[in-house]
Every structure is written in C-alpha cells, then in structure tokens.
C-alpha cells in the first residue's frame, strides 16, 4: 500500500511547508516535508475551501525530552494557510535539566498572504523543560493570526505548574522591502519556572495566581483588522472594576424591560462567563499588531472564552474556513 503521507526530509525534526495560490485561485501546498518526530498532514483539498489546512502533529501527540522540531513555513503571495493541532501538545518530563525540548518555527508571509495558527494549548508535564521560538516575517499587506497558550500540566495527575521551565518567544518582523530593512515589530516572551527572586523553589504555582491557562493572541494585517478592532472594542466596553450601580430601583426596572440587541445579549452572557470562570484579559495595539493576553481558572473556560469571541466576530471563519478554529471548540 502506498503511504498516505508525503515523503520525509533527512534532518530529525525538520519540516518545511510551502503554500501558494494555484492557477484556479485556491491555496495549495507545493511542498510538504517533515521528519520524525514531526508530522504534517493535510486533508485532501476541496475546490471551495478558503484556506489550505495542515495538521501539525507529533508522534504520540507530544514531544519527549530532547526532541527538537524545526519547521519552516512559507506562505506565498495571496495564499492562505491554516494550521491546527489534534489535542494538546504534551511536553514529557526530562530526565535531567540539560535535556531541553525545543520547537522552532520560522514563517514568512508574503504580500496579501495569510496564516492562521490556532493550535491547542501546550501542556508541559511536571519536570519538563521546553523552549519555543516562533518568528514571523510578515509583508506589509500580509496577515497573521497567532495563538500561543500554555496550560498548567496534567491536572488529572494533580500537577499544577510543576514544570521545570517553559519559555516561549513570539517575534513579528516586517519583511524587508526595497531600501527598507526588516524591522522588529513585536517580541513577546514569557519565561515560566526560572527560579523566583524570593529564592524559593516551586513558586511558579503561586506566581500563576490561580490561572490554569495563560495565552497570547497576536493579530496583524488587513484580514485580521476587524477581529483586532472587535477585541479592542470589547476590552474598552468591559465594566469598570470597583464601579457601583448608582441607578435607582425604578431605573433598574425600566432598564430591564429594554430589549437588548443580540450583540448586547451575547456580551452580557460573555461577561457573566468571564466573572464565573475567572477570565482575566487585556488587549492593546502595539506597533501595528494587536496583542490580547488572557488567563483563566480552567483550561476549558479559557478555550470557551477565546473560541466564543473569535466565532462571534466571525472573520477567521470567513477568511480561513470553519476548520481553522477547530481547536477552539
């Protein structure tokens, strides 16, 4: 039987993915190459799909100590690529502190091209050491939607931020053009589990302050502009912390009879969920990118929250297709 998977390259953990626009104006993959432990799978292409979908997988659903993944992705002019995973990326424990598990991603996005990277959270097990570096070089009219999130570990085994160390770096660069150098737009780096300044070990759980999941969403480019604006609008519409309701009982009764628009109903329900699930978030526009940081008291409530907003706004599904958001369901 012929293997359903494309042929492999030779370097362990190396991978290369090139997406381009076919003459029929659909996005296709011109190169798919990978080597154990990395695995890339793309479902067969349907003629009316909005972007080409690729599953970023690893054998066994996780990375064992010392695994090194190095994936290069090129999204050519006007092509659209969505990358998803199948379940959490597990980071298994390390036998000793010198053995580091690494994942490197280098992406270039050409003019009018777009990448949507909405994976499942990374799940670092107790005593794991993980370094992730993701570099995105985006052309002026290119678009990027990137979610990077990390959970507290195997909750079922009683783990709560018992990892040894986790570091994640996301860089967005503008691509070099005639006479203009490539310039760093955003460098978001999170380092967890390095020894804390109060000199004690095992303080990460305290430092995470009850959050089971923490994530960063980076949005850039014309296709994601509506979603970015939506986040910023919802952020500024958050109720004030410590504010009081000065309305009289009459006014409250009167306000309760008002018919809310569907968006207002959605916002009210979402705000209730934010309070009950302990979702904390903030949004800011930084040098042409919109950065949303969020944390929640449970992994599922974090997933529910981000998925709810992205679906409500709808531009990710419109631009990339429903499947692009499958990890947020």
């Amino acid at each position: 039987m012929v293997s359903p998977f494309p042929p492999s390259t030779s370097e362990a953990g190396e991978g290369r993915l090139v997406a381009e626009l076919s003459p029929q104006k659909t996005s296709t993959l011109s190169t798919v190459a990978f080597q154990y432990p990395l695995k890339l799978i793309s479902p067969s292409i349907s003629p009316n799909q909005k972007s080409v979908l690729v599953f970023l997988l690893s054998y066994g659903g996780g990375l064992v100590a010392g695994d090194q993944i190095h994936l290069t992705i090129i999204v050519k002019k006007s092509a659209k690529l969505s990358i998803v995973t199948q379940g959490h990326t597990k980071i298994f424990k390390c036998p000793s502190p010198e053995v580091i598990t690494r994942q490197k991603l280098h992406v270039s996005i050409a003019e009018e091209a777009a990448l949507c990277l909405l994976p499942d959270p990374v799940q670092p097990f107790g005593s794991s050491i993980y370094e992730q570096s993701q570099v995105f070089v985006v052309a002026e009219s290119g678009s990027l939607c990137l979610l990077d999130w990390v959970s507290e570990g195997r909750t079922a085994r009683g783990e709560s931020w018992d990892l040894w160390s986790w570091s994640g770096r996301n860089e967005v660069w503008s691509s070099s053009q005639l006479g203009k150098k490539s310039r760093l737009l955003v460098r978001d780096k999170v380092v967890l589990g390095a020894k804390s300044v109060n000199g004690q070990e095992k303080t990460l759980k305290r430092e995470m302050h009850g959050l089971q999941i923490f994530g960063t969403l980076v949005l850039k480019g014309p296709l994601l502009e509506p979603l970015a604006a939506f986040f910023l609008k919802e952020f500024s519409a958050l109720p004030r912390i410590g504010g009081r309701d000065f309305r009289s009982q009459d006014m409250k009764d009167k306000d309760n009879t008002l018919v809310l628009s569907s968006q207002e109903v959605w916002r009210r329900d979402r705000l209730q969920q934010e309070v009950s699930d302990g979702v904390l978030w903030s949004a800011a526009k930084v040098r042409g990118c919109t950065i949303i940081k969020f944390g929640a008291r449970s992994v599922e409530s974090g997933r529910l929250w981000i998925g709810d907003i992205i679906r409500e706004e709808g531009s990710v599904s419109r631009c990339f297709g429903e499947d692009a958001t499958m990890c947020l369901r």
């Binding site: 570091s167 770096r169 978001d188 780096k189 999170v190 430092e207 949004a283």
Partner: peptide, 19 residues
C-alpha cells in the same frame, strides 16, 4: 528578556478598567 509573572501583564493592562 521576558515576562516571568504573566498575570502581572494582565493586572497592569487592566489598570484602565478601574472605576
């Protein structure tokens, strides 16, 4: 150089939300 206390970014970012 990076953030070691992620919740700090949330608190600082949400300062604008205080009444």
């Amino acid at each position: 150089a990076g953030q070691t206390i992620p919740v700090m970014d949330l608190w600082i970012g949400r300062h604008e939300m205080l009444y």
